[in-house]
Write a protein that binds this DNA or RNA. Structure first.
Lengths: 329, 329
DNA sequence: GTGAAAGCGCTAACAG
DNA sequence: CTGTTAGCGCTTTCAC
């Protein structure tokens, strides 16, 4: 038998007689032969591997995203390499260089660093990349994001219904599109509703949520309700409120609706951006546009959904929440 | 210039004259030339990629492990492919087949499924694999685990000091070595201390923690303190206790000390198994034994550390905890 | 020091 | 339907 016949069998092509095919299969089995994906990648140019760039896999949002990306990729026979960029342009540059050398077929870029230009320079073929959780400036690259402005507005309205007249927003870095959009939504909604708004800086970390609370407490301008740019920051804020044994009836809401915050232990009100849908849609998009036909870039916006929980719920008639509850000796 | 000269420059070999070297470098720069890792892998047999097998990346223990694995691997210029096995033998089999075909250099196996024999059959070269978070039966494969028996014993002693006379243990699947060891440690310690012990089944999930509480509540045999096989299960147990508005002064402790449980929001007492050390040590081990010299398998056991928090702390003189606190209206 | 040639294990094009 | 041939882009002898 010739190598090409074996190759044909391996690729399930139909121009092989049934008896040859089964013969080849038997011999493959007997010899325990394993084809080399590396050699195949060298000649075809495809490694059936995609890269997922995240800010920090230890941030609970990303594992959920990674899981749905991985599940969807696997269905199509693709492996996923996960890379932590720490939102550093240098690190994402270094990673993309390496991944390109290693021959990954495509990228799902879900980290939020200020690296868009650099990334698109490194990956000139727009069909090889999809942005997730960040809306790129460039018009000709595909992305899937949540409607961040609407999500923030939904939270503001929810809190206003809860009789909060002064709402604080803990934001993210200005270079992060999702953080900017959430802040914009917050501003527009508070302005429209003529609600006092106060903003603190943050960086998506628990520590930054805690710092914001410190700043507000120190300034004596503590809002009665807090919206955080994401759930992690909200958890940081709550932690600090607990540390300070704050007796104020402060409502706290987050963004992303990561699995954990739905548990009664945390009970954090949050806006879901449907992480699993985002991941699977991103992979499908990428694989489709990596295919033969040329398809125009797809821009997809997911609808956010409000999940009200204890952290912003009315309690015994007065605005209160987990914070109050825990701090009461 | 010949290809071999370029190759020599790329590999930083010293048998190239300085002027040739700089000339080559310049041309590479001008042309924006990128070497092909795929072609290199084909000829050298090494792809500089390792695989990390986890049970479920959405389980908070694993992202922390993945992060430390990734950081350590990157230092050595290796990429990491993360794979969710769901603890299914079939899935890990399928993954290992694929990864081997794709040419990964080594495996870090941190998922706990009953797949040891199959895995070692698929990866006959013991130098290509390290087990993490699970102690293999096989004597000739390297691993890094925590001292699970000791960790469980530490928790028992801590709870006994807190005056608990009846302690429950929510376990894991019997095929998981780490779950078995923790259960053994629990049994030995309760026996030695002549403490009532009661055990419930679990599977490392929050849901299983909740189920255990249900079972105990239904049976009327609710222990006064609960030790869970890991933090996730402990969180599930606490959640259900909160749902049931349990007024019992029930202490809950977990295992792993994942980042989250240290926050005052959760305040769960836990035994740390030093996840970051485990990840980096595992990678270093793997890379060393994949090297030239033949090294014997390394068996490493990390010392567990107790972190006492609100969930098992004495409160106003009586045994109480978060559960009690939250459930009191 | 440098270049030429062989070949890693596949797929693709072409012949038969 | 099956076999032959020519690479894919590197590294590795072996000459020079």
């Amino acid at each position: 038998m010739s190598v090409s016949t074996v190759s044909r069998v391996l690729r399930n092509r139909d121009d092989v007689s049934d008896e040859t095919r089964s013969g080849v299969r038997r011999v493959i089995e007997e010899l325990g032969y394993r084809p080399s994906g590396v050699a195949r990648a060298l000649v075809t140019g495809y490694s059936r591997t995609i890269a997922l760039l995240v800010s920090d896999i230890a941030n609970p949002f990303y594992p959920q995203l990674a899981k749905s990306v991985e599940q969807e990729a696997r269905k199509a026979g693709y492996a996923v390499a996960i890379c932590n960029t720490s939102d550093s342009v240098d690190e994402s540059t270094a990673y993309i260089h390496r991944l390109l050398e290693q021959g990954v077929d495509g990228f799902i870029h879900a980290s939020v660093g200020p690296d868009e230009e650099r990334v698109l320079e490194l990956i000139p073929d727009r069909r090889r990349i999809v942005f997730l959780n960040r809306r790129p400036r460039s018009r000709d690259v595909s992305y899937v994001v949540a409607d961040n402005r609407k999500g923030a507005a939904i939270l503001v309205r929810h809190l206003v219904d809860g009789r909060h007249g002064r709402i604080g927003f803990i934001g993210g870095p200005s270079w992060a599109a999702n953080a900017r959009e959430r802040l914009e939504g917050f501003f527009r909604a508070t302005t429209d509703l003529r609600i006092d708004a106060v903003v603190a800086d943050g960086d998506f970390s628990m520590a930054s949520g805690a710092r914001a609370v410190d700043v507000w407490l120190a300034s004596g301008h503590m809002p009665t309700a807090i919206i955080a740019v994401n759930d992690t920051v909200a958890l940081g804020a709550i932690s600090r409120l607990l540390d300070r044994a704050a007796l104020l009836p402060i409502a706290v809401a987050g963004f992303d609706d990561i699995d954990l915050v739905g548990s009664p232990i945390v009970g954090l009100t949050s806006v879901a951006q449907h992480i699993d849908k985002m991941g699977s849609a991103g992979v499908r998009l990428l694989l489709r546009q990596m295919g033969d036909q040329i398809v125009p870039p797809v821009r997809k916006t997911l609808e956010p959904t409000l999940h009200v929980r204890r952290s912003t719920a009315e309690y015994e008639g007065s605005a209160t929440n987990l914070t109050l509850l825990l701090a009461t000796p």
